[in-house]
């Protein structure tokens, strides 16, 4: 993976690549080409990059959500509570260099530089459905590696039952950490068998680009059949454990956000229904699908469980 973004540039000034790769933008870009090639960050036009990747679980009318929405409608409370805050307030945040620790109940605990952490796996582009617990949804072309690769390499011991993820705690560049809105650092967790499922990704990119800061750079979790808050961002620690880990939203409001958080139209959030969802960019609401449309591949993980109780 290449992280060649000059980190002192505001994110708003970046992403001119589309200009000179997009045919429609070619003429406009031609004049500025010499300059922009030498100095990425001076063009301001930003056409949608192409969504490429293998679709997983997409319904027949699912189209990738535009780049502008994917990168400007985010919940990332470390940078503020409004959906546009993460894009606006993450300019000073530095996703590089980055180290990831894998520890706990594993045969081979280690602290990796991100490049080394990713090197053994092949980066894949996959298009997934994304459903937020707030009843909106997107379709996102992620780039990343299967989490199972990482776990297998670490070799969980026989006692390991859960995987806990931790977000970096960087109060200097994450203004949201000043408010005690959640228990910082943000943590999330999966049961080990969920974590090993081939659909679970550690994403490093979106739309074929490195993750923008607001989307969880440089490494985030993607679990397409669970509500979006399970997709912990800016991960710097992965810990195998035998106890169900504390998770940020469950600590904040245990009656509203469970550990499993599987997308389930039959189980309401206490304050709103989960029957339907608004796809960002669409007017009419869509029905929400069990396990967000991935029931066929994941429902068996929860055989015999009361999903109303284990929400």
């Amino acid at each position: 993976m290449s992280i060649k973004r000059p980190s002192d540039l505001p994110s708003s000034a970046i992403t001119p690549e589309s200009l000179y790769f997009d045919r429609r933008g070619f003429l406009a870009a031609a004049g500025a080409l010499a300059i922009s090639a030498a100095l990425p960050g001076c063009a301001s036009a930003d056409d949608d990059p192409k969504a490429t990747g293998t679709p997983f679980g997409l319904q027949k009318d699912d189209r990738p959500t535009p780049w502008a929405d994917v990168t400007n409608y985010n919940n990332f409370y470390e940078f503020g509570l409004e959906k546009t805050d993460p894009a606006a307030n993450s300019g000073a945040y530095k996703p590089t260099p980055w180290a990831v620790t894998v520890d706990g109940m594993v045969e081979k605990p280690a602290r990796y530089q991100l490049e080394d952490f990713l090197k053994p796996s092949k980066l894949e582009d996959r298009i997934y459905r994304h459903r937020c617990v707030e009843a909106w949804s997107m379709v996102v072309p992620w780039r990343g590696i299967p989490l199972a690769d990482v776990l297998k390499r670490a070799a969980p011991t026989g006692q390991a039952k859960y995987v806990m993820f931790t977000t970096v705690f960087a109060p200097d560049t994450m203004p949201g950490l000043r408010a005690p809105v959640l228990t910082w650092p943000y943590t999330e967790g999966l049961r080990l068998d969920e974590a090993m499922h081939p659909l679970v990704m550690l994403a490093t990119g979106v739309y074929g680009r490195d993750l923008p800061n607001q989307n969880g750079a440089p490494l985030r979790l993607v679990v397409p059949w669970k509500y979006g808050f399970k997709g912990i961002k800016a991960i710097n620690r992965i810990t195998l454990t035998d106890k169900m880990p504390d998770t940020a939203w469950n600590l904040a409001a245990p009656d509203e956000y469970g550990f499993y958080a599987n997308v389930n139209p039959e189980v309401d959030h206490p304050r709103w229904s989960q029957h339907k969802e608004r796809r960002i960019g669409e007017f009419a609401k869509r029905p929400t699908l069990p396990f967000n449309g991935y029931a066929e591949s994941v429902a068996s993980l929860y055989a015999g469980m009361d999903l109303r109780k284990n929400f």
């Binding site: 502008a68 929405d69 400007n72 409608y73 959906k83 546009t84 960002i280 960019g281």
Partner: peptide, 8 residues
């Protein structure tokens, strides 16, 4: 996107 990505 005057009212953002979820104008409603």
């Amino acid at each position: 996107r005057h009212f953002g990505s979820n104008p409603i």
